[in-house]
Design a protein around this nucleic acid. Structure first.
Length: 458
RNA sequence: GGCGGCGUGGCCGAGUGGUUUAGGCAGGGGCCUGCAAAGCCCCGUACCCCGGUUCGAAUCCGGGCGCCGCCUCCA
């Protein structure tokens, strides 16, 4: 059974399930107004790993992650580029999925779009107004957080203390600076929906409550996202659910920051903060490896060096995959106790993952198994090596790390060079053999000698 | 001002009262190889500082220093 840190209570505790054997989870998705950045990559990887591990554990997971396709940033970009909001959102959503596919992040089971749930949001806001926990101002509808029991739960601070530090926006006559917009009144040249409380568009915090409760139902199991969403976004989602009298997420999970140059990543920093950019420059699996290598709640440093370090780690895993010609099966891995894998290692793995997803140690375990498999191969114990290799594929696969150990497809010319080199070596004409090796290397191949002759890979 | 996190060997990054070590990368030595590559073996005796608790602390407690974050849009 998985034990997972719950931000709401500040401790690791068992992930309890509303329905036995089933997990309902909602992870806040992107606002599609720009290319995804490294922070997006981290949270999607972290929750992909969690999801895969739950599946591995034999649970039936329903994973919902939204696309925010209407907000200030989208409107701003549409205006600047003289396009519609829909065009902007569609373009960046496409780029989003491209990146997710490269990262091998499983697609959500459901991907609600904010604009498709506006009716539900309007109904929710109307109910909050009716209950008297929301109030109307000329520029929109606000939630009165003072009427919400336990406001500050996720922030870890009581309302008073939050209020003391809040910045005051002089332009708005909110009752409290912490009150937030449920609905933003229509402005010229902005998309708007008709509503009983005036035309406008939904505030950000409203969509996720409405979509998560609509799709997963009251009291769903887990709500996740980046640490920055803890407050105010998740706090405000929860506030609405409380104000509605509906049970909300039972467990809250947040992943740590992506750091660049020792500081929280920010948009003003260099190009390496673009996930799209990183995925074009490096093996996408390297980012997953980097993410797995530190605990999901700890900050990670992403630099060219840490990525390169991860890529070299990947080389070691790939080398074993090639040696044993291991290729990961498609789709998530489901745990088994087959006799063809190392049961003791699997048990260690499960114990580590069950303890708040200790992926750094789990990864250490995988690397240990790699070493053992190599040793077994060197000792000629192929059956043991195969068993260890199968375990590596399984456990790494449970965290979403995949391998393709199949021999590279060679074109006729390359194959001819490789064969010529084998012949030269057989004839002990090493000068010719080395020249052929140089030629192959110049063409981008890594050349290795194996018992069956020259082996090539990229 | 309120709240929170972090400080480990050349680098990244786990760990937590003691014994045998996380793991990866880089580096040195060796084996293997025609030479390489891959692989294997050996090598680092680290834990911000100062006190304290303890038979024993990197690990617990107190103090200090440094770094970072949240309280505002942000994954």
């Amino acid at each position: 059974m998985l034990n997972l840190y719950d931000t709401a209570v500040g401790t690791v505790r068992p992930l309890t399930l509303r329905d036995e054997g089933k997990v309902s989870m909602y992870v806040c998705g992107p606002t599609v107004y720009d290319l995804p950045h490294l922070g997006h990559g981290r949270f999607t990887l972290v929750f992909d790993v969690l999801r895969r591990y739950l599946i591995y554990s034999g649970l039936e997971v329903t994973y919902v992650s939204n696309i925010t396709d209407i907000d200030d940033n989208i409107i701003g970009r549409a205006h600047r580029e003289d396009r519609t909001e829909g065009e902007v959102a569609a373009e960046y959503e496409e780029r989003w999925w491209e990146a997710m596919d490269l990262l091998e992040v499983l697609r959500p089971d459901m991907t609600p779009h904010a604009t498709a749930f506006v009716d539900g949001m309007i109904a929710t806001i109307a109910e909050l107004l009716e209950r008297g926990t929301a109030y109307q101002l000329p520029d929109g509808v606000y939630l009165d957080v003072s009427k919400v029991d336990g406001y500050g739960l996720l922030a870890g601070q009581p309302l008073e203390s939050l209020r003391a530090g809040a910045r005051v926006d002089a332009e708005v006559e909110k009752r409290s600076p912490l009150d937030f917009a449920l609905w933003k009144a229509a402005k010229p040249d902005e998309p708007a929906w008709a509503a009983p409380f005036g035309a406008g568009r939904p505030g950000w915090h409203t969509e996720c409550v409405v979509m998560s409760l609509s799709l997963l139902g009251d009291g769903f199991d887990l709500h996740g996202g980046g640490l920055d969403l803890k407050f105010p976004h998740h706090e405000n989602e929860r506030a609405q659910a409380v104000a509605l009298g509906r049970p909300f997420a039972q467990h809250w999970a947040h992943n740590g920051w992506v750091m660049v140059e020792g500081e929280k990543m920010s948009k003003s920093l260099g190009n390496f903060t673009s996930l799209t950019d990183l995925l074009a420059k490096a093996d996408p699996r390297a980012y997953r490896l980097l993410v797995l290598r530190s605990h999901y709640r700890a900050p990670i440093e992403v630099t060219a060096e840490t990525i390169a370090d991860a890529e070299r780690g990947l080389d070691r895993l790939d080398a074993l995959a090639r040696r044993l010609e291991l290729t990961s099966p498609p789709g998530p891995v489901i745990g088994t106790t087959d006799s063809d894998i190392e049961t003791a290692a699997v048990e260690r793995f499960v114990a580590l993952m069950d303890d708040d997803l200790q992926t750094p140690q789990a990864l250490g375990l995988v690397f240990e198994l790699v070493g053992e498999a190599n040793t077994a191969l060197d000792d000629g114990d192929e059956s043991r090596a195969r068993r260890l290799g199968a375990t590596v594929i399984r456990l790494a696969g449970a965290m979403g790390l995949t391998f393709d150990g199949a021999a590279a497809e060679l074109d006729a010319a390359t194959l001819a060079l490789a064969r010529a080199r084998d012949e030269a070596r057989a004839a002990k004409d090493f000068a010719a053999a080395d020249a052929l090796r140089d030629q192959l290397q110049a063409a981008g191949w890594v050349v290795e000698d194996t018992p069956s002759g020259t082996a090539l890979h990229r």
